[in-house]
Simulated scan of single mutants.
Amino acid sequence: MISFASFPSRYEDTTYEKTRHHASVKEDFMDIDDAESFEAQGSKLTCPGESLTSSQAYMRGHGTYVENEEVIASVAGTIERVNKLVSVRAIRSRYNPEVGDLVVGRITEVQPRRWKVDAHSRQDAVLMLSSVNLPGGVQRRKLESDELQMRGFFEEGDLLVAEVQAFFSDGAMSLHTRSLKYGKLRNGQLVVVPPILVRRLKSHFLTLPCGVDLILGLNGYIWVSKHVKENEQEGEEGFDAEAVYSNVNDDIDDSTRAAISRVTHIIRILTSRFIPLSDTLLLEAYEWSVEHGSDVKDLLHQDFGDALVVSITSGQ
C-alpha cells in the first residue's frame, strides 16, 4: 500500500501542504507505535517537523531529532523502523550501496587496469579489468594486450549494468560484469530517478509485453531498451566480443521506439509524485496508458498523468 503522511496542523493553512499531496492518494495516519500496522502500511512519506513517535518508547535514528520527548523528522523521506530504532531515509540523497546490488553506471575515466564509473553514489565506483568478461572465456588471465585494448571494451561515456562486488578501504564500490547479463548497454534510453523510489525486487531485469526491457538499477539509474531474446544472451564460452562491446545501436522499429518512450514517460510521472517503482506497478501503469491514451504525447499532459496515478493507486 502506498500512503502519504499527514502534515502537522501548523502547515495545514499553507500552500505547501496543498501542493505536497495528490488528490488521488488517501491520507492516512499510521501509528508507529503499532509494529504490525507499521509493517503493513509499507513505505510512508513524512516531512520535516512532523512528530513520529514518543522518544521514551523508541530511539531516534538518522534524519530525526528529539524535542519535547517526541521523535521528530528532520528531512523529507520515508520512515524506516528496525526494532526500537526509528529513522527517516531522505528522498533527495545519494545512493548508499550494498554488496550484491544491481547498478547502472556511466564510464567517466579509463585508468591503468580499471575504469571509473559514475554510479550516482558519493564517489565514483571502480570496475577492474580483472572483473569484466573478456574474449576467450571468463576465467582466462588478463594480459598486457587486454590492458592496451581497454577502450575497445569500455570508453568514456559508455553505459553499463554491473553488480556491486565489494568495497575498497576508502568506501568506493568495486563492480563486476562477469556474467553476460551484465555489461555494456545499447538500444535504449536512460532515466534518472531518486534511488529511494526503486524497490528491491526478486529480479531487477524486467520484460514488458510491449517488447521493452527494463533494468531497474538500485542506484536510481533505470535503463529502458529494446527487448533482447534470451538465446542472444546465452553462451558465455566463446561469446561474440564485437557484439557485446559494440557502440553501434541496432535498428529499432517505430513501434518499439514508441513503447520505449511510453515507458520512460510513465516512470517520470510516477517518480515525480514520489511513488515507489515495482514490476507490477509499471506493468499496470503501461496497460492503463495504452487503454486510455491514443498517443504517447498524451502522457505529457498533467491531467493525463494525474488520472494515471489515481487509477493505479486507488487499489493500493
Rank of each mutant, 00 (worst) to 15 (best):
I2G: 01
S9P: 06
R10G: 02
Y11I: 02
E12T: 14
T14M: 02
T14Q: 00
T19G: 04
R20M: 12
S24F: 12
V25M: 04
V25I: 11
K26W: 04
D28P: 03
M30Q: 15
D31T: 02
D31F: 15
E36F: 01
S37W: 06
E39D: 15
Q41T: 09
G42F: 11
K44Q: 13
L45Q: 11
T46Y: 05
L52R: 06
S54W: 09
S54A: 15
Q56L: 14
Q56E: 15
M59G: 12
R60Q: 15
G61L: 10
G61F: 10
G63R: 03
G63A: 06
Y65P: 01
E69N: 15
E70D: 13
V71P: 10
A73G: 05
S74W: 01
A76L: 12
G77R: 03
R81L: 11
R81K: 15
V82M: 06
L85K: 13
S87Q: 13
S87E: 11
V88K: 11
R92L: 14
Y95K: 08
G100V: 13
D101T: 08
R106V: 15
I107M: 01
P112Y: 09
P112Q: 09
R114V: 00
R114I: 09
W115A: 00
V117E: 02
V117C: 00
V117P: 01
S121K: 02
V126G: 00
L129D: 01
S131E: 14
S131W: 03
V132C: 04
G137S: 04
R141H: 08
K142A: 10
E144T: 10
S145Y: 05
S145A: 11
M150E: 02
R151L: 08
R151A: 10
G152A: 03
E156K: 10
G157K: 07
E163G: 08
E163C: 09
V164K: 05
F167S: 11
F167V: 05
S169I: 03
D170R: 04
G171Q: 08
A172H: 12
L180A: 11
G183Y: 03
L185R: 06
Q189R: 07
V191E: 11
V192F: 02
V193E: 10
V198H: 01
R199G: 04
R199M: 09
R199L: 13
R199K: 06
L201F: 08
K202W: 04
K202D: 14
H204P: 00
L206Y: 03
T207M: 13
P209L: 04
I215A: 06
L216C: 10
N219R: 04
N219C: 03
G220P: 08
I222H: 11
K226G: 06
H227I: 14
V228G: 07
K229H: 10
G238P: 10
G238I: 09
D240F: 07
Y245W: 09
S246Q: 12
V248Q: 08
N249F: 11
N249I: 03
I252Q: 03
D253N: 15
S255V: 13
R257I: 15
I267H: 00
L270R: 02
F274L: 07
I275F: 03
P276M: 07
L277C: 05
S278H: 04
D279G: 08
T280V: 12
L281K: 00
L281P: 00
L282I: 12
Y286R: 04
E287Y: 06
W288P: 03
D295F: 07
K297V: 13
L299N: 02
L300D: 14
H301W: 01
H301V: 06
Q302E: 05
Q302T: 12
D306E: 05
D306M: 07
S311A: 14
